[in-house]
Computed example of a mutant assay.
Amino acid sequence: MALLAPGAAPLVTKLCDPTSAWSGWVSVDGQPVEIYQVEHKDRNSTCYIEARDDKEFVVHFGPRFAGGTDLAVYAAIDGSSVGGVSLSRTRGNLPHKFKGARVSSTAICPFQFAHIALTDDADEACQTESVVKNLGTIQLEVYRTRILGNVPNRERYDSVKQPVVDEKSKKATMSHSTAYGAAKTSVSSGQTTLVDWIDGLGSPFWTLEFKYRSRALLELEGIVKPVVEPSPPPANARATSASPSTSGSNAAELKGKGQKRKAAIISLSDSDYDDQDDLRAKVARLEAEVGQLRGGGAGGVKREKEDVKPEVEGERIGKTSKDEKGRTVIDLLDEDDE
């Protein structure tokens, strides 16, 4: 986790309902991730988080047991249920972790952020409406119940896999979906809780929802501020700081490394957002540039197609700003030659 500068506001990592009766958060490498743009509407609390490429994540739920009822909490990822837990009001405020999708009584497959999987084959694409509609989301559905007791577990387990989406139906504002890592040992209790439902199944009392996107998309949508990387010192400053023993040829070499070419500018006007295909192309290009600069991949993963490497050479993202016409302007500053 990044260290905060002195006087900086603490990171907000927990998503709560308006009364703070329940909270949820997502962790990567054992650390909770920051949440952005929290909203509450129609028994839903929503926020955005950054999807970190190929990283496993864990979903947490923290109850307060307001109202004195027991709870049933179901986790749904990309519109598919991946686990549930019954929490007794006598249990206190102990949080519960959803570490992965259970595939047997002794194993789970951990959740993993992955670039969205696309296909141009309509027959191969996922047709489940709830999955297509909720792609890129992590939901915690909270139900009020009364626990009656425990019975032996007779649940059947299905295999899990990352959904494959028709590239024609994929939204331009989508970047990632969830894949599942190799199975890990996790032994089930063998018991299922029998409950009396206060809220009907399928109509949760409250839902906590995390919308996960790439950093590039979060910046493009104005959800997070662009990361401004520090500029290298001017060439003459570096030459001045060189030791007196530096030879003339070495000094010339240092000066040459400090030179910059003219900054390239990408301007995205409001009219650019009218066409989804055009926006998809812009998003893909921006993600490719960010991915190359940060040493990672970008864009969706298309099945049975060769990846096309973006034609971007040595560009560094400087900053994003608004010009006088309300357009988003992204300065791309060339890196120093090595």
Rank of each mutant, 00 (worst) to 15 (best):
S245A: 02
G295K: 11
K14Q: 09
G256L: 07
T69R: 14
S169C: 10
Q162N: 04
E167F: 08
E311L: 15
I138C: 08
P152R: 01
G202T: 09
D337P: 05
A183Q: 04
T240I: 08
N236A: 09
Q31R: 12
E167V: 12
S105W: 01
F205T: 09
D70Y: 06
A172S: 14
L194V: 11
G300M: 07
F113K: 07
G318L: 14
A288K: 09
S188K: 05
K168S: 14
N236R: 04
D334I: 04
I330E: 03
L87Y: 01
E141V: 00
A8H: 15
S80V: 13
E315S: 13
H96W: 12
D270H: 08
N93M: 08
G84L: 08
P204F: 03
T19E: 06
E141A: 07
S175H: 10
S214K: 05
D270T: 06
D275L: 11
P234N: 00
G299H: 05
A51L: 06
Y143L: 11
G314D: 13
S104K: 02
H96S: 05
F111N: 06
T145D: 05
F65V: 01
L140T: 00
I198C: 00
G24E: 03
T106G: 02
D307G: 13
T137M: 11
D275N: 10
D334Q: 13
T178A: 05
D158I: 15
E219I: 14
V142T: 01
K260I: 05
